[in-house]
Design a protein around this nucleic acid. Structure first.
Length: 354
DNA sequence: GACGCGTGGTC
DNA sequence: TGACCAAGCGT
């Protein structure tokens, strides 16, 4: 096992990007940045981090906020469970831990939204604790360094990689060491066309020695991505439209949408699909009118083509409002957190009304 | 332990 | 344009 830390940290000191969360380091800022960075690239996170910190500058301000306000700041970033858990954890910490993040890996690990990686990252970066971290970048760097044939993500591969992350770790600068490995993975040891010529670890890298860097890390086969046809109803009454809140647990949980759903084989056509969905969700028959557009969108595990329709209620029919069903004017839609496609529809309505 | 969970960039 | 990829976590 070579000592990679010295050359790694030297490289990091010369090449680290200046990022918002690398100045004014505090446990709170480190925490917010690490949650945002889960499965999300640095360039995407930067503007969200800046806005979020302006809006919620410290842990008490986040704990006091409403979930809708937190989700609105998160809108567009995806994986909204991260925002719900961040908010929940802030409230827990202010109830039980004096509004302080614990300086302890196991205690961090128990907070909602903090798993093995994030606990190690916060502990090492914010508190200087010698805890390893393993993310997609470090998996790739270490897989190549060790020329690991086990697929990253497999149980055997994970075991080897976590042990390696711990063995390599600098006891002196663990936070910089973890960030340096991630920085190296993001800037040099990239998935395609890795820059081995300018890599500080190429001399120790088994993959580079054998020319196998482009074939690593090994990957398991991925299943085919299904494609669904879905419909959405913009139900209009006077100058208002109906929006519904999605349940907390699942896809786009807690966000608002124009109701609708998947086309089933039993549906004769798109309007029939939409009438069925609205009947099932809201208990009323709607009149389906003109098309408001067709939207394609790719989620992680499936793809949709969404057909939006202007709809109206027959005379005498009504829909009772509730916590999760509201009639709002197009200009009020901006206050309701939404996913990508529904926001596109909402914006087209605002433009139409203006 | 396998699966569900968003979105944007890249090639 | 479609497939791949990304500072993972919860159930």
């Amino acid at each position: 096992m070579p000592d990679i830390s010295t050359s790694l940290l030297d490289w990091y000191d010369q090449n680290a990007r200046q990022l918002p969360w690398r100045s004014d380091i505090s446990p709170y800022r480190t925490w917010v940045s690490e949650i945002m960075l889960q499965q999300t690239q640095v360039d995407t996170v930067i503007p969200y981090f800046e806005r979020f910190i302006l809006r919620f500058p410290d842990l008490p301000s986040l704990a006091r906020a409403s979930q809708a306000d937190v989700l609105r700041e998160w809108e567009g970033l995806g994986y909204y469970g991260r925002a719900r858990n961040l908010h929940k954890a802030a409230q827990l910490l202010c109830q039980e831990h004096n509004c302080q993040l614990p300086a302890d890996v196991e205690a961090l690990r128990r907070l909602p939204g903090i798993g093995r990686y994030t606990a190690g990252a916060i502990a090492s970066i914010a508190f200087g604790i010698a805890a390893p971290a393993l993310d997609a970048n470090i998996r790739r760097v270490l897989s190549r360094l060790l020329e690991l044939r086990e697929p990253a993500g497999s149980p055997a591969g994970e075991k080897i990689l976590w042990e390696a992350a711990g063995r390599f770790l600098s006891q002196h600068r663990p936070g910089d060491h973890n960030q340096a490995l991630m920085e190296l993975g993001a800037l040099v040891c990239t998935p395609k066309a890795p820059g081995c010529q300018r890599c500080p670890l190429s001399g120790e890298c088994l993959a580079y020695a054998h020319g196998s860097q482009n074939d690593l890390p090994a990957r398991a086969e991925k299943p085919a991505v299904p494609h669904f046809i879905v419909t959405a109803a913009v139900i209009q009454q006077g100058d208002k439209v109906l929006v519904a809140q999605r349940p907390q647990g699942g896809l786009l949980g807690g966000l608002w949408e124009f109701p609708g759903g998947k086309l089933e084989t039993s549906d004769p056509d798109l309007p029939a699909c939409l009438r069925r969905e609205i009947r099932e969700e809201l208990g009323v028959e709607v009149c389906v009118g003109q098309s408001l557009g067709v939207f394609r969108h790719a989620y992680t595990h499936f793809r949709i083509t969404l057909h939006a329709f202007a709809c109206s209620l027959p005379p005498g029919e009504d829909i009772p409002v509730s916590e999760a069903v509201r009639w709002v004017t197009p200009s009020e839609l901006a206050g309701f957190p939404m996913g990508k496609v529904d926001r596109l529809i909402a914006r087209s309505l605002q433009a139409r009304a203006a």
